[in-house]
């Protein structure tokens, strides 16, 4: 057995190596197959949508005639809703992450919060829609508005940002914390001067990933009453009268890109399908850009900081 001749030894190894190689080939083939199918289809979507991707498409409101319909209201809505989402979710999410990781590490309160957050991250998005409908629309009377949408989506991505922040902070080696404490820094100074700057890259990456998930959400927004046909823009944030800024746009009805796309997909005419493909292409480009930004940020900020 263990004192095999060299021929027996090689025979034994050869048998085992074959299994390894079969898996290697199979694995590669499967991955390629899956990736190619997806890529080919994405390309097809771009080709279908390309004829519609013109200047006019971006600056026209939806219309009953497919060739005149555009995504003006939709992309403005997406941009405004995303901004609101970011404004609410980022500060609260990052602060919560820091608190949980650096202050509330032990104790029943922290454990309770932790269990709740990890559970919230797994709740289907449509549930958030239902909750938001009850709270923001019915209790707080915020209406079916941009403000409601921003609040809803920030609830949705809050757990993601909290988790990303915690993981980013946890990845910082203890030796760096100890070095700062050893110089007499307070906990807050350690956080502000060291932990936050060092984990910024990872936190930003997590935020962008969370936002790019929020961009594609439809169900919770439809639940709180996003419209599918909007032929006007929200009120401008600047006015000619004192105090020159207005928050009326927060109360405007809205639609977003995926809802607009959804609406076109469900229409029978082939021309609307081309519109849907074009909107899909825009959405994919938007998420890829965001992803690219995340990868770039991680790369840049990681390069400056290595441990």
């Amino acid at each position: 057995m263990t004192n095999w001749s060299i021929e027996e030894l090689r025979e034994n190894i050869k048998r085992r190596q074959i299994v390894s190689q079969i898996f290697a080939i199979l694995g590669l083939l499967l991955i390629f197959f899956a990736l190619f199918t997806l890529l080919a289809l994405t390309v097809k979507m771009f080709i279908d949508g390309l004829p519609r991707l013109s200047w006019k498409f971006f600056f026209s409101f939806p219309s009953r005639k497919p060739e005149e319909a555009g995504i003006f209201a939709a992309w403005v809505g997406t941009a405004v809703v995303m901004m609101m989402t970011a404004v609410f979710a980022i500060p609260i999410g990052v602060a919560s992450g820091i608190y949980l990781e650096e202050y509330g590490k032990k104790g029943w309160l922290a454990a309770l919060i932790e269990v709740n957050i990890s559970n919230l991250a797994g709740v289907p998005s449509i549930i958030y829609g239902l909750l938001a409908l009850g709270l923001f629309v019915q209790d707080w009377n915020l209406g079916e508005s941009i403000l409601t949408a921003g609040l809803t989506l920030s609830l949705l991505i809050l757990p993601v940002i909290v988790v990303a922040t915690r993981e980013a902070i946890r990845a910082i080696p203890n030796s760096l914390r100890e070095a700062a404490y050893a110089l007499g820094a307070s906990k807050w100074q350690v956080i502000w001067d060291h932990l936050l700057p060092y984990s910024l890259g990872s936190i930003l990456t997590g935020i962008i990933v969370a936002l790019s998930r929020a961009i594609g959400e439809t169900a919770p927004l439809i639940t709180i009453g996003a419209l599918t046909f909007i032929a006007f823009l929200p009120d401008p944030p600047f006015t000619s009268q004192f105090p020159y800024i207005s928050f009326a746009w927060l109360k405007s009805p809205f639609t977003v890109m995926p809802i607009q796309m959804f609406n076109w997909v469900s229409r029978p005419q082939a021309a609307f399908q081309a519109n849907a493909a074009a909107a899909g292409a825009v959405l994919v480009v938007m998420t890829l850009l965001m992803n690219g930004l995340a990868i770039y940020l991680r790369y840049r900020l990681r390069k400056g900081l290595k441990w």
Partner: peptide, 28 residues
């Protein structure tokens, strides 16, 4: 380089909105 390409594609796919998957699946 092959792994790098696959890796970039996989992370990008993870971020694509679900409705795009719906459109792609409708097509295929």
């Amino acid at each position: 380089w092959l792994a790098a390409i696959i890796e970039i594609n996989v992370t990008n796919l993870a971020a694509v909105p679900p409705i795009i998957y719906g459109l792609v699946a409708l097509g295929i």
